[in-house]
Design a protein around this nucleic acid. Structure first.
Length: 452
RNA sequence: GGAGGGGUCGCAUAGUGGUCUAGUGCGUCUGUCUUGAAAACAGAUAUGUUAAUAGCAUCGCGAGUUCGAAUCCCGCCCCCUCCGCCA
């Protein structure tokens, strides 16, 4: 949510942002909003004037000296007030509805681009030779030609396999049974792949504990306002599973979160933090649920895009001065994870056209190189939402001078289950086994995953 | 699912139709006093909105009665205690 005052004063800028971000201009209709805004102010002034007069009359009548004239005027005012309030509510609803579609203002240096093919690469790294010269980076996949052609950890040269083939050969994934009991894009993961997942989680959590993170187990079924708060609604409503049945205590629906981000940030709803208590650095490992509507024909093979997966997610509530540094700090966590797992990767900063997430003022995606598929796979997203989510969630802090200010929110994927794909495809061996990355061996209790 | 109690200004409480946006205590801030601190005394101390030190809104939420609602009616939410059921 943007500050109405800001919209009022910068309508042309909003139009540009709507265009650059590819937001539906019918929904994010600036002109219509401005019109409604005027009507709203007008109605609101009239209503306040009516209320003022009504209060005045009530005061005059207090103490029992009732006169019919004033009583009649009061009665008439009540009528008028009712009408005004109805109109105002109507206008305000529409006014809010449109404003809900205005995306956050991107930072000035964010590239204007049409889609992911124009995302600038800001960093690239491979385990054997280290960071790739920044001059060699470009857009999208331009650094691919500097990425390893072959598997870096293979015992000998062979044609790499797709992760799902490796998983099924090793008896660690059962897609067919998942589909049978829950439908397509549901999968059973079993055995060492699960142990590997737990190892990755433990490895990262131990690191984050030293960085002042608070582990959180949040609710995963939440009310609508939570998903509105993070801006998953209204834009991404179709991505979310709605739980609606007669057994809910509340009549309103609940929604299964697609990430712990909404749940974690909702911890700050209607709160006023003390400045010295910020940043509040939360980390949660939770299941995530996504309908994936609209991408039913995409990534159908394997576990890259499924309806349910686990994610280690970092969510930080901070002051306005802290968000940029926190954003970089989280990106450094991503660097640390991928480098210590010795996975080749690059990081792209999302251009306006690829940053569909309304709350985003800046976003970057770490993407791991898959030598077998000769492509990068997104494994996370670091997002600075500035005050966009905080305004929707009414999340504030009191600064040193006693002023109330909106918080900033920053969120980043630590790892999702996609990291398992990255590990398996990069560490596969000619005999079908998979090496365990060195740093995970103590957490895994073994150095290789083999067929039973 | 059944029975009862409760949600008021940071905290604790008072407040059953007008003098209540709201009293009192604690806390916090400022001042007086003091070398300084404490104590005592005096004053201040909610948020949102708006150009506004004026106005309006807000006593869990929503709707209603009334000229006028923290207070009355209706619906809902949340918390606590007990019983039942269950993971």
């Amino acid at each position: 949510m943007l500050d109405p005052k800001f919209i009022r004063e910068n309508p042309e800028q909003i139009k540009t942002i709507v265009k650059n971000k590819g937001t539906n201009p019918e929904k994010a209709n600036v002109e219509k909003w401005l019109e409604l805004d005027k009507t709203r102010t007008d109605l609101s002034n009239q209503l306040e004037e009516a209320n003022r007069r009504r209060n005045e009359i009530a005061k005059q009548l207090s103490g029992g000296n009732i006169t019919d004239d004033l009583k009649e005027e009061g009665k008439a005012l009540k009528q008028k007030e009712q009408e005004l309030r109805n109109k105002l509510t109507e206008v305000e609803n529409e006014w809010n509805e449109i404003a809900a579609w205005f995306p956050n203002v991107p930072f000035d240096d964010i590239k204007v681009g049409k889609d992911d093919t124009e995302n600038p690469e800001i960093f690239a790294w491979r385990p054997d030779t280290g960071e790739i010269d920044k001059n060699k980076l470009g857009e999208n996949m331009d650094s691919a030609k500097y990425m390893p052609d072959n598997l870096l950890y293979a015992d000998k040269e062979f044609t790499p396999k797709h992760h799902i083939d490796i998983l099924e050969d090793l008896g660690m994934a059962d897609v067919a049974q998942g589909a049978k009991i829950a439908g397509t894009r549901f999968v059973y993961l079993m055995g060492d792949i699960v142990r590997l997942q737990k190892a990755v989680h433990a490895y990262i959590m131990n690191h984050l504990y030293t960085k002042d993170f608070t582990p959180v187990n949040p609710p995963l079924l939440v009310k609508e306002k939570v998903l509105f708060g993070t801006s998953h609604f209204p834009e991404g409503r179709d991505q979310v599973y709605e739980i609606k049945n007669e057994f809910l205590e509340d009549k309103d629906s609940l929604f299964l979160v697609g990430s712990s981000e909404p749940s974690n940030f909702a911890y700050g709803i209607d709160r006023v933090f003390k400045e010295e208590d910020l940043p509040l650095k939360m980390v949660a490992i939770t299941p995530c649920f996504r309908s994936e509507v609209g991408s039913w024909g995409k990534d159908v093979r394997g576990i890259k895009r499924v309806h349910q997966f686990d994610k280690l997610e970092m969510d930080i509530i901070c002051t306005q001065d802290q968000s940029s540094d926190i954003y970089n700090e989280l990106l450094n966590v991503n660097h640390w994870i991928l480098q210590s797992l010795k996975l080749p990767y690059h990081i792209v900063e999302k251009c306006t056209g690829d940053s569909g997430y309304a709350a985003s003022a800046r976003q970057a995606d770490p993407e791991v190189w898959l030598p077998g598929q000769k492509t990068f796979m997104e494994v996370g997203t670091d997002t600075n939402a500035t005050d966009f989510q905080a305004r929707r969630m009414n999340m504030k802090y009191i600064d040193k001078d006693g002023n109330r200010k909106l918080c900033h929110t920053v969120n980043d994927t630590g790892v999702s289950d996609r990291i398992l794909i990255a590990i398996i495809e990069n560490y596969q061996q000619s005999d079908g086994s998979v090496l365990v990355p060195e740093v995970l061996i103590p957490f895994m209790g073994k150095d290789r995953i083999v067929k039973k």
